[in-house]
């Protein structure tokens, strides 16, 4: 079976997940993103690549940062962007996902950027487009359920490469709620593909997937032990709704055990960088002094996210 992300020439047709994405395509996206970072410094922050293309942002789940950066990226490529507000859309009136897609195809859509609470929704759309013969319409997964958030994973890889260079000499720790995190899954897939030799996940047993070690990671339940000598600390957001279940004690207790403080960060390498996909819960998973500290690259991640999304969209639209 063909990789559903690739066209018959082996080029990227959709970006659905980083799991199983060929290494050379992943590297190519990072390489192409580099010159896009420079566009933000120009008088005219616009390139003509996607002139005349219509991109629909289909966000069935709330998001501010991801939707905004996708919108900025598409606009800097000169595309026409339509944001579908789901609370006022036909979905609220009972229209099915694929009927919504068919209607937008009838409006000559060129690309869908999809965020959905259900894992697999972007794949479903991609398969539906293929079945309908719409080979020239592209799908970008902007986060689906617990499955994947590939552009976040890519911008994290771009940030690490920018700050640290060679992946094959790094120790990387992912800390927090891996169980519910599509970001963590995309990060793990990409870091394994890029050859990170020491990949660790750190978190309470209740927030790590069972048999997570089969993903090729080392598991730590003691944060101090897990952070020792790492080059990169990737924090995950603790979703507030997890607090209500039986998975966790109180936010204060989580902070004490798993929150990243200056004292715990001191166990990592002195030049270690601290990353967070946002939005941050200060005083829960990360202390303000660390979030605003010299080792944090959290706002760089946001900036690079625009360039990486420009690279993805311009690669897709050209294939």
């Amino acid at each position: 079976m063909r990789n559903p992300q690739l066209n018959k020439h082996g080029e990227l047709q959709h970006l659905l997940t980083l799991d199983g994405l060929p290494r050379e395509i992943l590297i190519k996206i990072l390489d192409i993103a580099a010159p896009f970072t420079e566009v933000a410094e120009r008088e005219v922050k616009k390139l003509p690549l996607l002139r005349g293309k219509s991109i629909f942002n289909l966000f069935f789940e709330n998001s501010t940062r991801t939707r905004t950066t996708f919108e900025i990226a598409a606009k800097r490529l000169s595309a026409d962007v339509v944001n579908l507000n789901v609370s006022t859309s036909s979905t609220a009136k009972g229209e099915s996902l694929l009927d919504t897609v068919d209607n937008l195809c009838a409006m000559q859509a060129d690309m869908f950027v999809v965020r959905h609470a259900s894992s697999g929704a972007p794949v479903l759309i991609a398969q539906h487009l293929q079945a309908c013969g719409h080979d020239d319409i592209h799908v970008v997964n902007a986060g689906d359920g617990r499955h994947a958030h590939p552009t976040q994973g890519l911008l994290d890889m771009y940030t690490i490469r920018h700050c640290k260079g060679d992946f094959t000499r790094l120790s990387v720790a992912i800390v927090g709620d891996v169980l519910h995190s599509r970001v963590a899954r995309s990060q793990i897939a990409a870091l394994k593909t890029l050859g990170v030799p020491d990949l660790r996940v750190i978190g309470p047993k209740t927030l790590l997937p069972t048999a997570v070690e089969h993903m090729g990671v080392r598991v730590f339940h003691d944060m101090r032990e897990g952070l020792r000598d790492v080059d990169v600390v990737m924090m995950l957001r603790l979703q507030n709704e997890r607090m209500n279940g039986a998975l966790l004690p109180t936010a204060q207790e989580y902070y004490k055990m798993w929150g990243l403080t200056a004292e715990k960060l001191a166990l990592a390498r002195p030049d270690a960088i601290v990353m967070h996909p946002g939005p941050m819960n200060r005083g829960v998973e990360i202390d303000s002094s660390v979030a605003d500290g010299a080792q944090a690259v959290i706002l760089k991640q946001v900036t690079y996210g625009i360039a990486v999304r420009m690279a993805v969209m311009s690669m897709l639209a050209g294939n």
């Binding site: 192409i32 580099a34 010159p35 420079e38 311009s314 690669m315 639209a317 050209g318 294939n319």
Partner: peptide, 9 residues
């Protein structure tokens, strides 16, 4: 498409 390897302007 974007086949060449673009570099910074």
């Amino acid at each position: 498409g974007l086949h060449a390897n673009p570099q910074r302007t």
